[in-house]
Write a protein that binds this DNA or RNA. Structure first.
Lengths: 187, 187
DNA sequence: TAACCCATGTAACCTGTTACATGATTAA
DNA sequence: TTAATCATGTAACAGGTTACATGGGTTA
């Protein structure tokens, strides 16, 4: 449902190809809405047939031909309308939490290992966010309107990863104590 | 993929009916893995045919008959195996962030309204978490093993909602300034 | 010579949502 | 009398994942 609008949002700053969108969705919008290239190409076709975007085929030598998609005035209108609607509470889907929930079934060391691996990815992502921040968002006042709003989404990413790591540290300490007590899940 | 294991995790403490599971998944596990009752009934049927759970039909007078599902030893084994596997980075899907990202297209007041409505739900959920906390998780040391792990998932919920509200406050201030400057998205 | 980038797709499949269906009991 | 609770399901559809396909150009 929202992929449609994620694409429109990505096209709002400039026209892009499906290929570029799948990379964009990887890099910035992808941090809060993910999709595969197959999904994107399909959706673009639909957006075109609805008249929310327009296409221009570009022949390239040395490279495969491409299709550049541009937001139409109808598309802008629909995007604005959608932004003003109340956002649904996002459906929670985090497998790690299921693992923690049933954590009493396994030895603490097993869970600790799973947690540490997740923490590695989270730290990496936080670092990535902080690098984007210092590379593009230091002089806040001199940013364009569009970039200032991007800054807000980046801030959310940073605050969330930091909260995650704080929780992981708490959890790690808890597991350490459980380990010392040596009561659970010896399998 | 993980719904299977969310159900096994919910059955790990005690046998339950599909109906009870869809309520449980609403109340506790539901905070990090959601599913409709239709999905749950279907999944239970599959888990039964795989031998990961066993069923017992119970006739009731005054109430519809029910089926009680119990975790089998095979089910426990599979759940333990899955817990030890590395957890995938959860796919991000948050429509509100798309709205913020393209927020320069609409007047700040529109976005503010969307943000405030989301904040209302978030505050409500945080309060709910805190109530569960003070009702069931005050005396940590006297909790059962299973409950101590549930405590960890509840802590994550609280830390996340607090981080969300902190971000919302930052964002609110930003929008207020933009509003005063009066530069954007007058439609 | 292997892998990756560019660029776009089809097809099968799995997962998740929404609508519909039944029917008795109990609380507002 | 209206709505909610208990209790289980079918069916259609929408959304998302994985596998497969093509093919030249560039980098290691």
């Amino acid at each position: 449902m929202s992929l449609k609008y994620a694409i429109l949002a990505a096209l709002s700053s400039q026209p892009r190809t499906g290929y570029e969108l799948s990379k964009k969705i990887h890099g910035s919008i992808g941090f809060f809405w993910s999709a595969t290239h197959q999904q994107i190409y399909k959706e673009l076709k639909e957006l075109d047939s609805e008249g929310w975007v327009s296409v221009r085929a570009v022949r390239q030598s040395e490279k495969p031909d491409k299709k550049i998609y541009r937001l139409s005035s109808r598309g802008v209108k629909e995007l604005k309308k959608w932004i003003a609607e109340e956002a649904h509470f996002p459906a929670a889907k985090d497998a790690l939490l299921i693992k923690i929930f049933a954590g009493h079934l396994v030895p603490p060391a097993v869970l600790m290992n799973v947690l540490e691996k997740a923490a590695t990815h989270r730290k990496k992502r936080l670092k990535q966010f902080q690098e984007i921040m210092s590379a593009h968002f230091t002089e806040l006042d001199s940013l364009s309107e569009a970039h200032q709003f991007q800054y807000l989404t980046l801030r959310r990413g940073i605050l969330f990863e930091q909260a995650w790591l704080r929780w992981a540290e708490e959890t790690r300490k808890f597991l350490q104590e459980t380990k010392r007590a040596g009561i659970v899940g010896e399998s």
